[in-house]
């Protein structure tokens, strides 16, 4: 080590430099941990407040405009097996597409529940 220290600035207090370096490195973790804790607390409070204030989850309003749920129930009983299978397949494919697109899009996960497309498809199948 001595040969290396020959090239160093003689005014450097190595014990001070090393100790303060370790303290500062830990300090960066502490700062980030405090930001993390503050962020998690704020997020928890906001999510709680928003879930309290939000209305019960419903399908998109524009998809429900033309839906008559009682009529749907009546029609559902009249469907044969092949029509039911086709509708089921369509819904599965659409759900898979949603998952794939949300993985590509990343953070912004799509809202769960039937989409306008799915509801409109169901209506067409039931008519």
């Amino acid at each position: 080590m001595d040969w290396l220290l020959r090239y160093t600035d003689p005014s450097i207090d190595w014990s001070y430099a090393t100790v303060t370096l370790i303290v500062r490195f830990i300090g960066v973790f502490v700062v980030m941990a405090v930001v993390q804790a503050a962020l998690q607390i704020a997020s928890a409070v906001i999510i709680r407040l928003e879930s309290r204030g939000a209305a019960p989850a419903t399908a998109p309003a524009h998809a429900l405009v033309s839906l008559d749920l009682s009529a749907m129930a009546e029609h559902e009983a009249e469907l044969d097996g092949s029509a039911m299978a086709a509708i089921g397949l369509a819904l599965t494919l659409e759900a898979q597409q949603q998952v794939a697109s949300s993985r590509i899009a990343g953070a912004e996960a799509t809202a769960h529940g039937p989409s306008a497309w799915a509801l409109a498809g169901r209506m067409r199948g039931l008519r």
């Binding site: 980030m32 962020l39 953070a107 912004e108």
Partner: peptide, 14 residues
């Protein structure tokens, strides 16, 4: 958004 959704990665930044 990605940082807020997964705040523990703040430590990775450290």
């Amino acid at each position: 958004g990605p940082l807020i959704a997964n705040p523990k990665v703040l430590v990775v930044g450290a």
